[in-house]
């Protein structure tokens, strides 16, 4: 049973979220501003917070800072602000993920599940040291297995090799040419598109929203990289 706190000043949105997350595994709490959210946090043991940024009395960012003073519970920000600067601000003050309004129910469910799994299952037991890890993605080279938020993902051999290359060198940008040369061991003349297609597939399999990837980032005009996650 997971306790989830939903916090938004718009009652309709809270209700809609409650309907989407209607699962026997979740116990849902609701708050309509930052102050109420903090009060509930004092009373209950919350495992996940879904919170709007623009709220009366105490906004999401301020609440976020207050929450982080005491706990490292995963926080997903809900926001109508789609600007990059707001997202970066949200992530910098300690948010784990964000969802832009208007949101898709599937996306909300997937992100909530992902965060819960990481927080409760993987967060405590990172025993397998030989496995490569990047956020919620885990690559075990011995068993040739890739786990995304604890669930096994089936990849083709090429996709696996590309992912392994990127995860072994987190933060480093590889041009499509480099990737082709390393994976195919061949001159990439005229076949750079292949790499792009494979990476697109990888993103579709590993990312909740392939257009806004969290792990496998596209550096436009230069190449691809796996974002470093602490």
């Amino acid at each position: 049973m997971y306790h989830i706190l939903i916090c938004d000043d718009e009652k309709d949105i809270v209700n809609a979220l409650k309907i989407y997350l209607n699962d026997s595994a979740y116990i849902l709490h609701e708050a309509y501003n930052g102050r109420e959210a903090l009060q509930i946090m004092e009373r209950e043991t919350i495992q996940l917070v879904l919170m709007d940024i623009m709220m009366p009395e105490m906004d999401g960012i301020e609440t976020m800072v207050k929450i982080r003073e005491k706990s490292n519970v995963p926080v997903i920000l809900l926001t109508a602000k789609s600007e990059d600067s707001d997202k970066i601000l949200g992530l910098n003050v300690g948010a784990d993920d964000y969802i832009t309004k208007p949101f898709h129910p599937m996306e909300v469910c997937a992100r909530v599940k992902s965060q819960l799994r990481r927080y409760l299952q993987l967060g405590g037991s990172n025993a397998r040291k030989e496995a490569l890890r990047c956020g919620g993605i885990e690559l075990d080279d011995k068993e040739k297995k890739v786990l995304c938020d604890g669930e096994e993902v089936s990849l083709t051999r090429t996709e696996y090799e590309i992912l392994k290359l990127l995860m072994e060198n987190q933060g480093q940008v590889f041009s499509p040419r480099d990737i082709y040369r390393r994976i195919w061991n061949d001159s990439p003349y005229g076949s750079e598109n292949t790499v792009a297609v494979h990476i697109r597939h990888l993103r579709e399999k590993l990312e909740i929203n392939p257009a806004e990837p969290r792990y496998l980032k596209v550096v436009w005009g230069q190449g691809y990289k796996c974002e470093k996650h602490g």
């Binding site: 041009s175 499509p176 040419r177 750079e192 598109n193 292949t194 790499v195 792009a196 297609v197 494979h198 990476i199 697109r200 596209v218 436009w220 005009g221 230069q222 190449g223």
Partner: peptide, 19 residues
């Protein structure tokens, strides 16, 4: 502004839209 390789960007874009 940053140096951008046109062919890389094109192949990336094509990869996104291929399917």
């Amino acid at each position: 502004f940053a140096p951008c390789e046109v062919d890389v960007l094109l192949s990336q874009a094509v990869g996104e839209y291929q399917s």
